[in-house]
Amino acid sequence: MSEWPPTEVGGDTRASSTISEDAPWALPMVSAIPAAQPSPSWSRRDFIKGIIASGVTVSGLSYFGSGCSGALPAQTVGGVERLLSLSVNGQLRRVDVLPAETLAMTLRYKLGLTGTKLGCDRAECGACTVLIDGVTHYSCSTLTHRVRDREITTIEGLEGPNGELHPVQQAFVDELSPQCGFCTPGQVMSAVALLRRNPNPTREEAREALAGNLCRCGAYHNYLNGVMRAAQSLGAREA
């Protein structure tokens, strides 16, 4: 172990083994997130750095975080309005949102919509897929502030007024599509978006449309069965 620890990296770490920012083993997992306090210096670059460095999303205010108590500023120092109206599943929801907050965190921790899942929190898996103006987005990598004038649809917004399942949901039940179920809400949302823009897809088109949704159980075949069945039942309903 003669070359350990490395003298050429991070200065003379042999003398002081305190973690150096430059040492190769200063892993992202212990890097600081830039303080999620509104400040004039907060930039998009800082946010992206924070996301990349942390492996977790900046949660902003927690479910019962300190920021929830006390008066909410209508305007922060940096000029970002914090108290927003979001249109979620056809309802206008007032919510306090920090500048760097992701939509997934707002939905899950502010609005109680836990059907949207966080599998990777970095746009790799698709478990957090929601619709924004009918288009699929990874909510883990979407800033809530960017969607304030948009129509957001989550898995909770698909059922009919009397609790009847959306045809995609019913088809996924009938085809026994989910296994563990953790990726399922995202798969459902991608399928719903597909059938809205293409009510009669081929299986290959469905496969392409859902390709951004990973399933570690490998239930792809059964999900595609579900999409094709849903397309049929939607077609039959409209015929």
């Binding site: 927690s62 966080l118 698909l158 399942l165 949901q169 039940v173 179920g181 953790f182």
Partner: peptide
């Protein structure tokens, strides 16, 4: 039709991160 499948397609199925409790800290 297994009884837990509807919860999976509706998002009502609760996984560990979906539970909240008054006074919960992180």
């Amino acid at each position: 039709t297994p009884p837990d499948i509807v919860g999976k397609v509706t998002g009502r199925a609760k996984y560990a991160e979906d539970f909240r409790r008054d006074g919960m800290v992180f």
